[in-house]
Design a protein around this nucleic acid. Structure first.
Lengths: 216, 216
DNA sequence: CCCAAGCCTATCGTATACAATCATCTCTAA
DNA sequence: TTAGAGATGATTGTATACGATAGGCTTGGG
């Protein structure tokens, strides 16, 4: 069995990502003890971790609440994400292993199958997360992993792919294929360029949903 | 009075930065309770935070120990730091306030005074940290603050400026002056270029001290 | 009727006790 | 002599109790 604090972390994080806990929702420790079936100590550890990852906010003596990205500058966030993930793709291009490329391909296949359906199923979102995560890992930079968590995990609550038009969804699939091609060619510049396009496209979809954000 | 967990965090962090706790040193919770004069609970919170900031490492059921950068790829770390701080300088150039520029200037003055002495005093290091921190803040991107903590705080244990030759130290002062000039001119490209030079120069000094790291 | 002051409850912050785990050392047997 | 199993100690993981604090509600006065 996973440790209590891990369990609490996973449960609370799932509630936030799934938007069952809406932005601004107060994360009261005693409530979470019954939800997670552990005591307050591991709940607190989970909360502190979620805060450090940007999924929750914290005020002293007032506890944590689900992060509200509406208050944040989404423009700046996506600029940073473009920088980080572009860099990750650049490094990954010359370091990724054949096994990792194979897994990317498998995930791309699976996402294309799923995207044939009308509705977006959770599996498609998780496959997409995994796709990006493999690239981060392939960049072989331990700090980059923690850094990217900060800019990649938090935007998950925005649930980008649910907002894609059919055309945008198809383009996203194309980006995945093209990234794989760039990795096969071990071409850093190409991989970075595609990744930047990929993130920029996601930002546009978000921009439609979250108003009063300046676009680039 | 600062809260117990903040107090513990500050004390332990100071021990690590000052290298009184050497890399690899085990951070035993019960020992730290007597050092910080608080109970284990806030000590644990402080440790988890230090781990999340990369100043300590953690193994389940075995506790934390001071992060050992020798095991890490310094090349990758500084590449990332160049990327992040360069970006910060770029953004800051068009957003920094006159008051912030004035403070940068004051810090540059102070550092030059101090660098006239032979030995490096702690104040010089802290002024340097503050200088960089102001630029991060001036970039006006909340995520960037957490991200930069991850790549800026950790390398502090390497104590770069202590390893500078007189020539390098003078060059570092020049970089500070030139950064201020670039900010005055509100020139993003210039600011980013100077910052990249500044970080690269620091990396060379580190490279001499920590062997078997590949240089760029 | 509105405002302010003080109490009061909800909630967090900290300490401490107990349980679980891991590493090491010892003792035994092949 | 050495490998393995068991015991033992040190240390972390978790639960819970108590104290501190902040924000809301009530009550009294203007």
């Amino acid at each position: 069995m996973a440790s209590a604090s891990i369990q609490a972390y996973d449960i609370i994080k799932a509630e936030i990502i799934s938007r069952r806990f809406r932005p601004g929702h107060r994360l009261v420790e005693s409530d979470l003890t019954v939800l997670c079936d552990v005591s307050r100590t591991p709940v607190r550890e989970a909360l502190r971790r979620l805060v450090s990852e940007g999924l929750a906010e914290f005020s002293p003596n007032h506890g944590a609440q689900v992060a509200d990205m509406a208050g944040e500058d989404l423009d700046a966030l996506y600029e940073l994400r473009t920088l980080i993930e572009g860099y990750a793709a650049r490094r990954a291009a010359t370091r990724i292993t054949p096994a990792q490329i194979a897994e990317l391909e498998m995930l791309a296949d699976r996402m294309e199958e799923l995207s044939a359906q009308q509705t977006v199923v959770p599996e498609e979102a998780s496959a997409n997360s995994r796709f990006h995560r493999i690239i981060i890992d392939a960049a072989k930079s331990s700090r980059l992993v923690s850094v990217s968590n900060l800019v990649v995990e938090a935007p998950l609550v925005l649930r980008t792919i649910e907002h894609y038009t059919p055309e945008e969804r198809a383009r996203s699939m194309q980006h995945h294929r093209e990234l794989i091609a760039a990795f096969r060619a071990r071409d850093s510049q190409w991989a970075e360029a595609v990744m930047i396009s990929h993130i920029k496209a996601a930002f546009i979809a978000i921009g439609r949903e979250v108003p009063n954000q300046k676009q680039v």
